[in-house]
Nucleic acid binder design. Structure first.
Lengths: 201, 201
DNA sequence: TGTATATGTGACCGTGTAGTCATATAATAA
DNA sequence: TTATTATATGACTACACGGTCACATATACA
């Protein structure tokens, strides 16, 4: 998505642009984010930005791509060699939490992208949500075959539940102080335990 | 929040303003909603609006107030005389669903308000979330005392789970075709059953 | 050196925004 | 009728936005 000009740039300058954009898109969702602020914070002229990217949208998609690449790299091995359905889910959300405290800007950009209702934006980067949905359904089927999961469960409802709780967990990560990491990892476990075992006595 | 001038207006004109505002705030979140569009759709002059409301924010808070009053009226009796914890929750979300299909504009305004991250807005209208949290905790305590709910459950985690799933359920209502009402009421029940009984075999 | 090419720049454009205000009109009271 | 008060109006202001473009400045090559 960036123009060749941008790729030819010295690394330091590229990073200045990327960092300024990350900060802006972390602070504001796409529509409210300001290109003017980005170029000011990056220390470049407005016109330069349009040498690097076709428009605001191209810059945004590039940044979101960077974010998801990093997150994929961070999570790719969670679904490898998994034995236990519920253990894998705990690992997934705990790892996501660690990503959020290690890369708060990237995390917040992902949240904002995710909450944006602009469908044309999502259509250009749908792989992620779909991937996660398919991963979950696949895991669920395997776990059901192994007898780890109730046989008479409605898969759509199960996905919906995990999707909802997972979304909110990841959302919550933004507000959490990084010091109490252990508490939060425990909280994730408590939440997922309720999903596994239910509330009913 | 409206000025006296607005309250003195003939009912038809008041409604025209309210409806135009409802449509705009249903279609766009606060920041992207346009007062210019509202006054055009309401068929009044820009200046008139500023005779009725101090500013855009005052209009918005008034509209959100109307929405929540209506929703409260719609739901007030759900928590009256409840016997069964899980039955009450099913009733609550099913009723919320009916609200959404009966008042789609109000519903969407509530969603948009709810998703807005502007804390100063929320601080002016927090009663709702807090009320629901307290209601839930209270219900949970009673249910636990009655032995309907596991004794060793973490209440914060339980609230978190129901809060997340409820939020997403209500969100989902916006996209649902109204014809398949029975199916959707059933889906709500399936989802809540998972929360009650868990997924684990 | 001179020439061609790549990159940098900020004033400027068109557009949309929230909000204002002098003025016009309607309704009410004396 | 006249004087007074409440309401209606839309051109206007100030501002912020994304995007453009003629021009300036490097860098590379001959």
């Amino acid at each position: 998505m960036p123009r060749e000009t941008f790729l030819n740039l010295p690394a330091a300058k590229q990073e200045a642009v990327i960092n300024a954009a990350l900060e802006e898109f972390a602070k504001y969702p796409y529509e409210r984010a300001s290109l003017t602020r980005i170029v000011n914070n990056a220390g470049i002229a407005k016109g330069s930005m349009y040498q690097y990217f076709e428009n605001k949208r191209a810059l945004y998609l590039y940044i979101v791509g960077i974010v998801y690449d990093l997150k994929r790299e961070y999570l790719w091995d969670v679904f490898e060699n998994e034995q236990d359905f519920f253990g894998t889910l705990i690992k997934y959300y705990q790892r996501s939490y660690l990503f959020a405290i290690e890369h708060p800007l990237h995390h917040q950009v992902a949240i904002n992208f995710w909450e944006s209702k602009d469908e044309t934006l999502h259509n250009e980067l749908t792989e992620n949500k779909e991937l996660r949905a398919n991963d979950f359904i696949r895991l669920l089927e395997i776990a059901r075959a192994k007898g780890q999961v109730k046989q008479d469960i409605c898969p759509e409802a199960a996905f919906f539940v995990y999707h909802s709780v997972g979304k909110e967990l990841i959302d919550k990560f933004s507000d959490l102080p990084a010091e109490k990491t252990d508490e939060h990892l425990q909280f994730i476990q408590n939440v997922l335990r309720i999903l596994a075992e239910g509330l009913q006595a």
